[in-house]
Design a binder for these strands. Sequence first.
DNA 1: CGGAGCGCTGTGAGCGTGCTGAGAACATCC
DNA 2: GGATGTTCTCAGCACGCTCACAGCGCTCCG
Lengths: 218, 218
Amino acid sequence: MRLLVVEDETRLALALQRGLQAEGFAVDVAGTGPAGLEMARHGGYDAMILDVMLPGLSGYRIVRQLRTEEHWLPVLMLSAKDGEYDQADGLDCGADDYLTKPFSYVVLLARMRALLRRGAPQRPAVLTAGDLSLDPAGRRVSRAGVEVSLTAREYALLEYLMRHAGEVVSKTELLDHVWDAGMDTAPNVVEVYVGYLRRKIGRELLETVRGAGYRLAG
Amino acid sequence: MRLLVVEDETRLALALQRGLQAEGFAVDVAGTGPAGLEMARHGGYDAMILDVMLPGLSGYRIVRQLRTEEHWLPVLMLSAKDGEYDQADGLDCGADDYLTKPFSYVVLLARMRALLRRGAPQRPAVLTAGDLSLDPAGRRVSRAGVEVSLTAREYALLEYLMRHAGEVVSKTELLDHVWDAGMDTAPNVVEVYVGYLRRKIGRELLETVRGAGYRLAG
DNA sequence: CGGAGCGCTGTGAGCGTGCTGAGAACATCC
DNA sequence: GGATGTTCTCAGCACGCTCACAGCGCTCCG
């Protein structure tokens, strides 16, 4: 397992490198944002430990940049800030886990193991299907770049469909996942909302598979 | 997105349920360990929020049990303990993320989003036979790369045949598995549908074994 | 070579499934 | 209080899937 540590405090960087090497990882260190980004792009790392406060380029921007370039290696973010919103921001911009300094080495190791166990995240922070894109964090949907306004229910339905793009999703599955269980809603609501969605996002993208369910273009 | 919250403090459980529902999730709550395990097994949830200290069965044991039963839904653990080793334990026993109480609702939400983003259900393999391929998840069939559109019954028949490619499948077997058992349908329907299928996927692939049944080219 | 099964296919009736518009119940905003 | 928006139910409609039936062709036997 090959890890990249991007951290400008040399003492911390060295400590991490030594500790992780003792655990059997191969570890490289970058001291600035741009260097880290470059190495992450081409180094073939299995995971990355990334400080938020970096000279040249913040950790947030590095993750965002990597994700837009379709690099999906697991990223564990480190930050001296401890405001909760920072943590939320870090995760929403594409990091996979977040630790605030000071952190315990044992926790770091456990989290890194958990990250590697999961493997590279397959899915981008923003879901796309055809010319449709959905940003779960911002709760926004746009079609061919044009923003579409959806109601809560329409949004929940579309999100579920997009997370299963290309697969056939049955009406009962949709009832279970998009509508609250226990509610005995008429199964017809699904058809009604599919109709609403089609009106807003376009008819072609959401296909009916008669007798089986619906399929969003993969 | 359908979530399961396993938490015995009813006030916290209700607060979580209400908050997450406001975000558009479908949320169920279990108040004890055994109930939570049972619901996680059969509820078809997209993710799970799991308290460590539970009456009946600890959160650790629940995760471990689920993992040994090959349930891979994302698990976010909650704990009042804050010793670092607990956190490491939680992650090592199979949870995907870990929050210590008291936690901020914003962080919980961001982490839950990150978990769902990662959640990559591995698709079942695509079935192939000759130049035919069938994708069970997408309910798609193509012949030599060209998509073929099948009705529900035709699809069910072909799927059964492909799962037994190379074997001779009798008409009564097909009646039992593709048509509802017990239905007294004329045995002739099988012949009719084999005819439809041959028209769509090609005559050569589906062979008649006179007196015994049909065989799809292996 | 001829007959008896067995399998194939065209036709058409019935009805299941999904789509839509109208409207009721409810919440929210001004 | 009225206007607006959201969620959901209901009923009507149309398409096309499913299946029974009947007649024909093919195959395997004596």
